[in-house]
Design a protein around this nucleic acid. Sequence first.
DNA 1: TTGAAAGCGCTAACAA
DNA 2: TTGTTAGCGCTTTCAA
Lengths: 327, 327
Amino acid sequence: MSDNNIKIDDVAKALGISKTTVSRSLSGKGRISEATRQKVLEYVETHNYRPNPIAKGLASSKTYNLAWVVPANSDMNALSFFQRCLGGVISASNEADYDIIITTTHAYDNKRLIKLVENRKVDGVILGQTLVNDINIEFLKKSGMPFVVIGSTSVSGVTMIDNDHSAACRELTAVLVMKGMKRIAYIGGDSTKVVNITRRDGFITGAAGNCSMIQMDCNDYKDISLAVDNAIDKNSDCIVCEDDRICQQVLAKLEKEMIQVPEKIKVASFYNSTLLENNKPPITSLQYDPRELGKVAVDILLKKTDNAEVPEKTILGYEVLLKASTQ
Amino acid sequence: MSDNNIKIDDVAKALGISKTTVSRSLSGKGRISEATRQKVLEYVETHNYRPNPIAKGLASSKTYNLAWVVPANSDMNALSFFQRCLGGVISASNEADYDIIITTTHAYDNKRLIKLVENRKVDGVILGQTLVNDINIEFLKKSGMPFVVIGSTSVSGVTMIDNDHSAACRELTAVLVMKGMKRIAYIGGDSTKVVNITRRDGFITGAAGNCSMIQMDCNDYKDISLAVDNAIDKNSDCIVCEDDRICQQVLAKLEKEMIQVPEKIKVASFYNSTLLENNKPPITSLQYDPRELGKVAVDILLKKTDNAEVPEKTILGYEVLLKASTQ
DNA sequence: TTGAAAGCGCTAACAA
DNA sequence: TTGTTAGCGCTTTCAA
């Protein structure tokens, strides 16, 4: 396969130069002649020399690892979001020769993250989710470890990467109003997550009074079923769902009650994934790109580890998908 | 918080001993007096000294990292399985002071894993899934890197951790036969995954001739819908599903066709997760413990990194959950 | 039972 | 432009 285990000394000797020169050729730091540089690169390539990242790390106090932190208990919906983010995170990290250490936290227990950071096993941290009172953010601010969050927070001095949920939800809701809906019900989930509050508030702004009901913290089918009953009692003409997991259950409930979409009631979702993909009718929804979110998070974090200036908040776009469910 | 950055020299000086002694007190290697040992431990505790794992790694050629490898494109079902495994993997690793580097592979592209291994960023690898012709297994065998797989493979000399899918599927199917079912249809997915072949074969053995139809590679609703049509055409009295994702879609199809479970047809699933949790009627299924799988995988892998002997195959148990859907 | 010193494989002043 | 040398913070022989 490869004569793994050759070290910088070996290539230096083989080429009759010093290891400093080899090191410089590879890192591009300091000036060296293009000729020697090429010589080194060629040798390294043909002999498949791989600098030992541990030794490199010790010398330059770096680990070439980034931490990816996700909640231990995620529902399916969050899981698929994190998975797609993670795809972008890994891809962008690998391009920069970084690897991803994954760890989980509970809302009130972040021992693992603390250990990871205090052990200096990573050069930076990405928080996959932000909570309303986030102990991870608190801890990371104090620790001095560079970090970014995916999502938003009101805590100051935190680097955020987020979709413009607020504008997106406002826009989609406003479109529904323009289409003539006057009694729109909103069904949302866990109100300790920042993004859920943001979506709800976007809805409220967009609805501009044309709102029949708002129900948060609907975490299982029972809650959602009751919320739908309530929406119907309130004579709603449309139900807007916080995400596709909720939407799926709303649709199931409506089907059970033989209430047709969009004839009897319209339905829209503030999030869209494979869950809703093949629904009949197709569901009006908001579309984001979690993979991009992950990539951008890594790019920004890496800048921070280099002490570069980065914007406090980076906003990525969205798409409003108008489908038959609100026709 | 903690005066992070004290190093072994600092504690040695503070205690008036050599750093060798400190090192030995912490690692437990070599003999030292219990008195000094306690002194060191106490100092370390109160001053929150954390040995630098990078330096430790360089000196002992270890990284204190394990790789967790999952396919880049997983359906929801696999995702939740991996997530639960990962919980066990992280938990067991952390207990041994290891961290988890996560990486993804595609069926025909494992560049990332190769890089991770050749860069010596990990001390061992856990493959979350086994394919029929698995390039990762091939590569890892050649590389000399310790590794274990979750699942089974026919490749020799590979350390496997798996549930006894074969016995479980056989047993559940046999129970159905005993209950009087004579025309059992089987609907399965991707036949390039070892586990899916195992389940199908377990079904065949358990059915002992009472099988009306077998349909593999049903990957979306359309496939499954056709398979159900086919099962009904064949006058089946029961449908056995390879996993809960398939089962969910089978149930949706049956509901659409107004075919009642269990009155008109029985339904069982070879896998059970939250997807099926609240179904009405409850679904007869097989229950495993993915978290345990992850934990055991780490324990065994760590033994391998210490050059200890480990069993080639470790089999974990299962439960047969008999519910109303086959009554 | 303890310590001195070499070394893990690299980077980066400082010199040349 | 290149090389010498001293670390990075630990572990581990070897000697005391």
